[in-house]
Design a protein around this nucleic acid. Structure first.
Lengths: 200, 200
DNA sequence: TGTACATCAGTGAACGCGCGTTCACTGATGTAC
DNA sequence: TGTACATCAGTGAACGCGCGTTCACTGATGTAC
């Protein structure tokens, strides 16, 4: 994504890249708007000159993709932590973590699933047979595993259907709750239990 | 939304307003990007000078809100038509129409549920007790009605839960399908039947 | 150990661009008398 | 019926702005000899 990263003097070098991603994330969450994440706004936030970003990203889009990649890593880490903290009820723990993640970072969550950012057009967006290498694929496979664990049997076609249905419901829930806050939503726990009860 | 609409000479007057909304919609669907719907792009599309738009909308945001309002009307009309064409299986007809609507106008659908556009900040986004007056409220009430019809009883708390779960699933499905086309989605009919089977 | 030099992360000024919006206007339409 | 005038939808030029990106640069760091 970055191309020519060479070792930096005084161990200070690639630190700026991380600061840029963190700054871009902060601008996104503060402004609530992907368009506000300009090179200049990020540079102001980080305290550098705007052209300095070009040392780490070839263009603005690459910077935004790095924010998305980082967010997917965080999501996966959050799900992994939830599952290992509650191994007896992995599916519930996982759903709670998913909803909690999206609720705590609504703007990052939205950006993660804005298609045109999740990869360049073309090859990456062609339909494929598995979720290998797909952005969010790790998270989805955790979901499949938690469903099959709850069902106390090996993953089957039905397991997969349940996992897709649950993912779709979770995503729909967190997206709509954010988009239509005026809707009379039930409490989060009630909603989650309802969605879980629809998994066979 | 428009403020000072007075009768126009030669019956030509408010026609431009409709042309502007149609032009903005066309720019949106062609570009796939809300940001591309600028006053100047719309004006080029319609064949007028950019400042002419100010005769019909106070600013760019009002123009975009008109696009959204028009799209919600279309959605409601599509759902109404589907239900009345298949009165014996209203819920299935309605789900198909919903998914079909979103699939045929992905960019409009996305814009409809981009919170910050669906109303000014403040009052309109405060949680409320009912769906009266909510953007998309008509559509949601159709869904509730179709669920209670299928259950052959008056709408209850459980009906409402089913309707919310179904709406959430439908929205999640159409959003993710658009955002992550590389995911190995089942055929649309299979997916729809699966989601319907989870309604009690 | 000392010095000349290569490296390279980051800078400041400048570019051209498209944008939303303002302004004074034009010119056809219809109306008052 | 004729004429002066009010109306008003739409125009063209211009504004200031922030943007992404390019460019030649600076100045500290570390290395070759």
């Amino acid at each position: 994504m970055d191309g020519s990263r060479r070792p930096n003097r005084r161990g200070e070098g690639s630190r700026l890249r991380d600061e840029i991603v963190a700054g871009a994330t902060a601008v996104l969450e503060d402004s609530g708007n992907e368009d506000a994440v300009t090179l200049r706004a990020v540079a102001r936030r980080v305290g550098i000159a705007a052209p300095s970003i070009y040392g780490h990203f070839p263009d603005r889009d690459a910077m935004l993709r790095a924010v998305v990649a980082e967010a997917f890593s965080e999501l996966d880490a959050a799900l992994a932590a939830a599952v290992s903290e509650d191994p007896d009820d992995q599916l519930r723990a996982l759903c709670r973590a998913y909803v909690g993640f999206a609720g705590a970072r609504p703007n990052r969550y939205r950006l993660m699933f804005a298609r045109y950012r999740s990869g360049e057009a073309g090859e990456l967006n062609k339909p494929r047979a598995t979720t290998e290498g797909l952005a969010g694929g790790d998270a989805f496979r955790r979901l499949v595993h938690a469903v099959s664990t709850r069902q106390a049997r090996a993953a089957s076609e039905e397991t997969l259907q349940d996992a897709v249905a649950l993912w779709v419901a979770l995503h729909g829930y967190v997206s709509l709750r954010e988009a239509v806050p005026a809707f009379p939503w039930p409490p989060e726990d009630t909603m989650l239990e309802d969605l879980l009860s629809r998994v066979r």
